[in-house]
Nucleic acid binder design. Sequence first.
DNA 1: GCAAAAGTGTTCTATGTACACCCATGT
DNA 2: ACATGGGTGTACATAGAACACTTTTGC
Lengths: 237, 237
Amino acid sequence: VSNRPRLSVATDVALFTIRDDRLAVLLVQRRSPPFDGAWALPGGFVEEHEPVAEAAARELAEETGIDTVDGHLEQLRTYGDPDRDPRMRVVSVAHVAVAAQPPEPKAGSDAAGARFWAVDDIAANGGPGLAFDHSRILADATEWIRSKLEHTLMATAFCRPPFTIGELRRVYEVVWGERLDAGNFQRKVTGTPGLLVPTEGRATAGAAGGRPAQLFRPGPRTRLHPPILRRSAVDIA
Amino acid sequence: VSNRPRLSVATDVALFTIRDDRLAVLLVQRRSPPFDGAWALPGGFVEEHEPVAEAAARELAEETGIDTVDGHLEQLRTYGDPDRDPRMRVVSVAHVAVAAQPPEPKAGSDAAGARFWAVDDIAANGGPGLAFDHSRILADATEWIRSKLEHTLMATAFCRPPFTIGELRRVYEVVWGERLDAGNFQRKVTGTPGLLVPTEGRATAGAAGGRPAQLFRPGPRTRLHPPILRRSAVDIA
DNA sequence: GCAAAAGTGTTCTATGTACACCCATGT
DNA sequence: ACATGGGTGTACATAGAACACTTTTGC
């Protein structure tokens, strides 16, 4: 029980939200080598007696000032390539989190900055290259959240309750980058009982007018049967 | 970079195969505390400079004598509860593997035994209780493999090529525990090109006769569009 | 001939999509 | 009045399930 190899275990978190009608992820700017000045997913080392998910939430709060108490935090997968950190062996358990309307991030003492980046801008020309293998992690996390919307109502995590079905539909449209038929979407999410529970009152109409919508909160069920499939996923067939 | 907490990182492997028309998983019997005499998933500690997946394959071979060179080995998820091992903090990266027709397992020096157990018998009365949190891991692994068959042709990993479509269908029926319509299944897996490539020759008819079937090998594509859904999954709707 | 498995054809039903249409509000 | 988003109704196309039916083998 004594001479077992002992490795560093870390967590990285991809915290998604929607900013200016675009899917965005929270990044921190490093201010020490390696990758000094580069942007990276927030994260850090797991303490000796700390649950892994708790470490993810703690590091997120320390480095960006954003709490995930209300948001979802789920494990994505573990990245264990021996060379992924040039300094030493670090096995990282990556997580995905979602926040509805997070406050402005504040860079912690270790970081030179912290801000949300539109996911599409990160890989694009002029976007920041990410440190370590975080480009890979972010790509996996993005595909994960897109796919998750197909089978669950996790989209509600992007909305502060109470919310309207129109707001929920806009989450899908932003995350997937495609338009959905409003009427059909309405039926799909209201069809299975327990997904959404109606709330007293109605939303006020937008600046452009329109009929005030029914307000909802997330219900006890989250699984979508049948799933709502992306066009892009269907097209592969 | 120096005083980072260092934890033990382990892997556990759920190696599935089909024995006697039942879904079976490979277990080893412990012969030292804790859980002395109990059955557990094969696994062990990740070495300092070793990729995680490699550690899983190595430990599997050391403890059971079964190589996974031909079979699939994929990461499932990571279990990091601080109390999951009573001795010390161990974070375990669980994997799922599939073997077509593995040789008889041979218990390694650390183990009192190694054998395949029908998955249904493990949780049942008279079945062995599993050590650590391996019941949970096995439950997750079982659901994972069942769900994987819906969206991919991973079922081919249970068959030694060349195989017939009937053999492939029997994999689905055993893993899911439900009957599938032979004709519809045939069309589903042959409908998308690239999933299965026909091979020279035909299978010999079984003892009970029957028309000899076309032989196939796994093709370059593995994704099923549209998916083949279980009844049990549909029923939840 | 009979049983059994492979493979094809066909019908029926369910479900998703597209789109028309009314409702309720702001300007 | 008109634009805008909410919500409902409906017709059409399509995909999957159920099942009949032919083919090819062993006994």
